[in-house]
């Protein structure tokens, strides 16, 4: 009893901060989860290499910022608004292109040959893990296994303060946090619209429902699969740029845990379902941070996975169920 009242006492003042931090972190999970869910929806394949698709994006945006003349630790002042928009635009485009390109490359090199040979599903999974390790180690070699810093491009400025009163400290909300959560929602909305309104989206949904029938109807299966990987990669690129702004340090091995969390978010929300990825990401971020505030930070990963197990016990298909092709086609 005493334990819980102490813990509660620890949590309460930080409640506002933790909710804001949790939603921000959750938005990044959601953006990465979109990639897992898209590929799973179409191929029923868990693309474990997706965490490295994200990883190369984080490096791409930093490299591009360096070319433009903004590197970490060179003492540049925070640039003016116009420059910031330009830098963010360039960084996001570079990250998305590199991430998208890597995703397509992995598809062509690692999965397409297996698909042609009708390999069993397990083989795809092992290949995915292999690709993930190979890319992460390659990046580790190229960067001397040292972390890279990110230049300070956006000074976090408080836009408004949530003051719930009671004994909860007022929680400032910064421009960066608003931007990250909005980006995740916009990205989800764009992908959802693309899938449901465009011809290509129709093709993706057709292949997700039944590959062979779709092929008979004149859908180019290979092209659709490549497109799916590309879309997931683009979302990962956006996540990579936002991650850089938020965390400020990257290293060759950040993909693994983040990928695992994003995959968890996808399963939590209902894998194969875009809206599920968004909801799953936000819920996971919130639960993790509140859990860390309550039990102490060292339990952060435990809380996340315990919640996953509990949700799956009652809703085996996740919070919103799995439905890329089936339910909403």
């Amino acid at each position: 009893m005493n334990y819980f009242s102490d813990r509660w006492h620890d949590l309460l003042p930080n409640l506002g901060d933790l909710v804001v931090a949790g939603l921000t972190q959750g938005a990044i999970y959601a953006l990465i989860a979109l990639g897992y869910t898209l590929v799973y929806g179409v191929l029923q394949l868990i693309n474990f290499a997706h965490s490295e698709v994200f990883l190369v994006g984080t490096y791409a945006s930093i490299i591009v910022w360096g070319w433009i003349g903004y590197a970490a630790g060179d003492g540049n002042p925070v640039p003016a608004l116009g420059t910031v928009i330009l830098l963010l635009g360039a960084g996001t485009i570079a990250a998305s292109l590199v991430s998208g390109g890597t995703a397509v490359l992995i598809e062509r090199v690692a999965y397409a040959p297996l698909r042609r040979k009708n390999a069993p599903r397990l083989i795809f999974l092992i290949t995915a893990i292999g690709a993930s390790v190979a890319i992460s180690e390659l990046v580790g070699e190229l960067t001397n296994r040292r972390p890279w810093g990110v230049p300070l491009l956006v000074e976090p400025k408080t836009q408004f303060v949530i003051d719930p009163g009671m004994s909860i400290n007022p929680a400032p909300v910064t421009n960066l946090q608003i931007g990250i959560v909005l980006s995740a929602i916009v990205m989800w909305f764009l992908l959802d619209t693309f899938l449901n309104r465009s011809r290509f989206g129709l093709g993706i949904r057709a292949v997700a429902q039944n590959e062979d029938t779709a092929a008979l109807m004149g859908v180019n299966k290979d092209r659709v699969i490549m497109l799916t990987f590309l879309l997931g990669g683009l979302a990962a690129g956006v996540a990579a740029t936002l991650y850089n702004l938020k965390i400020g340090t990257i290293s060759f091995n950040i993909g693994f845990l983040l990928g695992l969390k994003a995959f968890t978010a996808a399963v939590l929300g209902g894998i194969g379902n875009l809206r599920g990825a968004l909801v799953g990401g936000l819920v996971l971020g919130l639960v993790e941070n509140l859990g860390a505030g309550f039990f102490g930070n060292k339990w952060i990963d435990v809380v996340a996975f315990v919640i996953l197990v509990i949700v799956l016990m009652f809703r085996p298909t996740g919070i919103l169920g799995d439905s890329l092709g089936r339910a909403r086609a």
Partner: peptide
């Protein structure tokens, strides 16, 4: 006093406590 985990990258929960 707080503990972080090896390989953790997002320290929001710890940072919130430090701030308080």
């Amino acid at each position: 006093y707080e503990q972080i985990q090896p390989k953790q990258t997002d320290f929001s929960a710890v940072v919130a406590k430090v701030k308080t």
